[in-house]
Design a protein around this nucleic acid. Structure first.
Lengths: 336, 336
DNA sequence: CTGAAAGCGCTAACAT
DNA sequence: ATGTTAGCGCTTTCAG
């Protein structure tokens, strides 16, 4: 019990000695674009292989090479949309040669305590997603020599960072149009209250199209984006004076809860009695028993743009703090 | 466009100068358990605060301090169970002062290419989860001076690593017992074929209890653990000679697909005509339209034990390569 | 308790 | 193309 693990590490000097060359040659061998004769390179590679040498990143970074680690400050991974985004992000980052390190927090206020930590690691970039970037975070960014990226948090005016996001206003518009096309006369929208205005943007786009069409809209705001919250919101909505015949849920998880309330608790038919649209297009939205019509976020595009921004930053040395809004798409299924 | 970001960093020397002390004092101030007079400590802290100093981790590690980064080699995060596990793991790791960095791969063979990368970072530990630890990975571990942890991959004989897992055999037993208690006469099990034997362990436990009870069991193996796979498996099962009246799906996602096949495609009632048990207890299993009876994996426990193992390793300097199997629990819902 | 000095392993001029 | 040298920012003896 308690197996001792060999702690000795093989250094470039060891390899140099074994290969009968200087340390520089070893370093160059492992630096792409450096000049080493084929003969010595082979010598070094063989020695390295035999000794099991791997360059020490800490030393490399300290010696002035850019670190290739990018921080990901994310909200709860129980959120299927975030998990998906993280998945795509790690793929993209890895392909581009970056190493994602995770700072997961449950609330925006948790994030504060993590900021100093992030600073210590001299990341190339840190990507913020799934939590509202408070003033605190914004201020932190402006003091760092790294590329700050805010991912999918909608329109943000006060943050100095590259802002890459789904166009949530547009998403809301698509939802409204779909519902209208489906014959909605009395729509409602349930949004979630969070610092970042993404749910509000969705709702605003929704109402905008409705206004244009001269249709009134009921709004309901809940504090969580959960199944429970969607369920309760639906029940509450059904008790209001004007029974809505079409509901736009701010995300799919809430739509799931709302649908169950509608069909199981209220005994209504969807889309017969009430039409429903969700948002995100998480896997559960496609489940046979739900098949929720929803607004699909461009996860892959979001991820690849974030990676591209970091690559650009490395090449140019300057952060391009542009805002990019990517249009989502309507996915028709069986709830409209 | 293209905002230049200030690249200058504040070093311990800067702080020392500003505080009128030597660099050593600054270092000690930031090393817990070092001796610095209250007066100078205050001086240093103030100067550090004013200049926005954060110790450079790369330098610290290079100078001999243990790195606090632990690698997580994980399978696809689209797997809700893995996402959940990762979520809990990052929380635990952070509380214990570790920094999780992510190596996400889609298949076990992808993992090979990542191994050298992991070596470069001199992690304290790396945790493998959601992919089958091939011989390649095993061999890699044995050469490293870090704590290797295999998380939730079942019984593994050939790997030199701490093995922390749900007791999948036990899980299978629970599933069988539940189905038997529900009156199953003609059960079936659908497992997934992967290198690591976890699905096979579940099925083995399942069959073991059935054998004891003198009940025959149909087995079906699929290549993916997806909704689609579960759906197709169910359809196939229904066409076989002996129509099963109880199905154990190797995971909840497959159970979801199977349930839809049962109710929507086959027009059968669950649990009236056929009983179903899943495995994992992912959020979707609890959805109103499904409410799958399932075997819940001890995610929190899994995560905390992994963290504890790393903490132990840091304290003792020796890796405790014990195998720990944690019992899952049966969660009765509406499909039995 | 404090400061001086010696590295940790690597890269990047700088001379060959 | 190669070797030599000087750091990167920090921790840690070692004297004082």
């Amino acid at each position: 019990m308690g197996k001792k693990i060999s702690a000795s590490r093989v250094t470039a000097d060891d390899v140099a000695r074994a290969a009968g060359v200087s340390r520089s040659v070893v370093s160059r061998t492992f630096t792409k674009g450096a000049s080493v004769s084929a003969k010595r390179r082979k010598l070094v590679l063989e020695a390295a292989e035999k000794l099991g040498y791997e360059p020490n990143i800490a030393a490399r970074v300290l010696a002035g090479k850019a670190s290739n680690v990018v921080g990901i400050l994310t909200g709860p991974l129980l959120n299927p949309f975030l998990a998906d985004l993280l998945d795509k992000l790690s793929d993209g980052l890895r392909e581009a040669g970056f190493l994602p390190t995770l700072f997961k927090v449950d609330t925006a206020s948790d994030a504060k305590s993590i900021l100093p930590l992030i600073a210590q690691y001299h990341m190339v970039s840190t990507i913020v997603m799934g939590i509202s970037p408070s003033a605190q975070i914004s201020k932190f960014f402006s003091g760092q020599s790294q590329m700050p990226i805010i991912l999918n948090l909608g329109v943000l005016r006060d943050v100095e960072a590259a802002n890459i996001s789904t166009d949530h206003f547009k998403g809301g518009m698509l939802a409204a149009q779909a519902l209208l096309d489906g014959g909605a006369r009395n729509p409602a929208v349930v949004t979630r209250q969070i610092e970042a205005g993404i749910y509000e943007e969705r709702a605003a786009g929704f109402r905008y199209v409705l206004d244009q069409a001269g249709v009134q809209c009921t709004s309901l705001q809940v504090t969580e984006g959960s199944y429970q919250a969607g369920h309760e919101a639906m029940l509450r909505l059904s008790k209001s004076e004007k029974h809505p015949d079409a509901i736009f849920f701010g995300n799919d998880v809430m739509a799931l809860g709302g649908l169950d309330a509608l069909r199981i608790d209220l005994g209504l038919s969807v889309p017969g009695d009430v039409a429903v649209v969700g948002y995100d297009d998480i896997p559960s939205a496609a489940l046979g028993a739900y098949r929720i019509s929803t607004i699909r976020q461009p996860v892959r595009k979001l991820a690849s743009m974030a990676v591209a921004a970091i690559v650009d930053f490395e090449n140019s040395g300057a952060a391009d703090l542009t805002t990019s809004m990517i249009a989502p798409a309507y996915v028709p299924r069986d709830t409209i």
